[in-house]
Simulated scan of single mutants.
Amino acid sequence: MNSKVTSETYKAQLPLTLRNRPTLENLDMSDKELKKTLKEIRRTLGELQDVFYAHDKYGVLICLQGMDTSGKDSLIREVFKDFNVSGVEVHSFKVPTELELSHNYLWRHYIALPAKGKFGVFNRTHYENVLVTRVHPEYIMGENIPGIHSVADINQEFWDERFKQINDFERTLTKNGTIVFKFFLNLSKEEQRLRLLRRLAIKEKHWKFSPGDLKERKLWDTYQDCYEEAINNTNKEHAPWYVIPADNKKAARVIVASILLEELKKYKDVMEPELDDKIMSKLDTYQKELENE
């Protein structure tokens, strides 16, 4: 693990004020050094994943939130590159489907949770339900909730209740063997502008651009306020938030990978299961049988 990164440094401290948190960190390393460091950490993470899979007692849920262009997709690709593909599942939550809207808002997240022994990555998460829907409360009307007849019915009490529901959801998960990590990729507005310009300038990146990105960008301050309130209301010891400077993508990946490794190593009970005594006593016999075929 990179000694320059500790999970405590990036853990959200309440009350959180995002404008006081840095958006740029390079860990005093060049791009080449950052790439090498990540390679070393993710190899160890991949080996640890195998042990978690064999141990079969904990699932690991990694939640990634951030403004558009904050680097969620590339972080997933680079940090989890050395994982066994059968042991990690990535879910990207888009606009809810008709089926998803016919259930409560947490349903689609419940059914995507990682099984014990596996890692799950949520690219955008259940927090969209107190972020994008808060910026655009009219979206709530599609959920057809009893007692909500118009946007005027969606008040502070409604959001406070959602924060409570999310806290209850995450506490239930952790009490039943899911380790929850929540990362907010803290991007500056200027860096987002530059990344959007790159999408427009590079033909191969055109597909990533949508005019809607510019509309949402105009709501930057509103989104920042909503993120701040969501983090302050749901930062719990059993499911903490980590605020990751995201202007330097390579450094952000190293930080996230380092935190995962540091925290997962704290689970000292996680180890590969041993064969029972009966099988152990016959290993030589099994070996000879195979050698003599």
Rank of each mutant, 00 (worst) to 15 (best):
E157P: 00
Q65G: 06
W207G: 11
H109T: 02
F93S: 09
S70R: 05
N20A: 13
T6V: 06
I259F: 02
E8N: 12
V243W: 04
K164D: 14
I279M: 08
R217I: 04
V132M: 06
S86M: 06
Y10G: 08
L187M: 12
S188A: 08
L214M: 15
V5A: 04
E272Y: 08
Q192S: 08
E89A: 10
L200I: 14
K266W: 00
F52Q: 06
K118T: 13
S74R: 13
L196Q: 02
G66T: 08
N235Y: 01
G142L: 03
T125E: 05
W107T: 11
L275T: 04
I154T: 09
K208H: 10
L99T: 14
F83L: 01
L27D: 11
K4V: 01
T6G: 01
V254F: 09
I166W: 00
T44H: 08
G177F: 07
R134S: 04
V88I: 15
T285P: 00
E293T: 12
Y242C: 12
E128N: 10
R195A: 10
S102K: 11
K236E: 13
S7Q: 08
I148T: 07
T222G: 05
N84E: 07
D50E: 12
M29I: 07
K268A: 12
A246D: 12
N20Y: 07
A201W: 01
R171D: 12
E204T: 13
P137H: 05
C226D: 11
F163H: 14
I259D: 05
W207K: 08
V121L: 10
M141N: 05
Y223A: 08
E78R: 14
H149I: 04
E237M: 00
N104Y: 09
T9Y: 04
E33Y: 02
D276L: 01
Q165Y: 02
T37P: 01
K205F: 06
L99M: 04
I148G: 05
I279K: 07
K208S: 10
V5T: 08
F209Y: 15
M67L: 14
H55K: 08
P273W: 07
I140C: 01
C63T: 15
K94V: 11
D284P: 02
E138G: 02
A251M: 04
E25I: 03
G177H: 07
I231R: 00
E98C: 00
K116G: 05
I279H: 00
V130F: 03
F119Q: 09
L290K: 11
N84M: 05
V95L: 03
N248Q: 03
K32P: 00
K164M: 04
K94Y: 01
N84W: 03
K175Y: 03
D247S: 09
R124L: 09
T6P: 00
A230K: 03
E228K: 09
I76D: 06
L106I: 06
T97L: 01
V270N: 02
D73W: 03
A152E: 15
E47N: 14
E291I: 07
D269H: 13
R198I: 01
K215Y: 08
L283A: 07
Y242I: 12
T44E: 15
E293Q: 13
L16A: 04
R217H: 10
A201F: 02
D160I: 05
M280L: 14
S188P: 10
I166V: 07
K182L: 08
L99P: 00
K282V: 03
F83Y: 03
H55N: 15
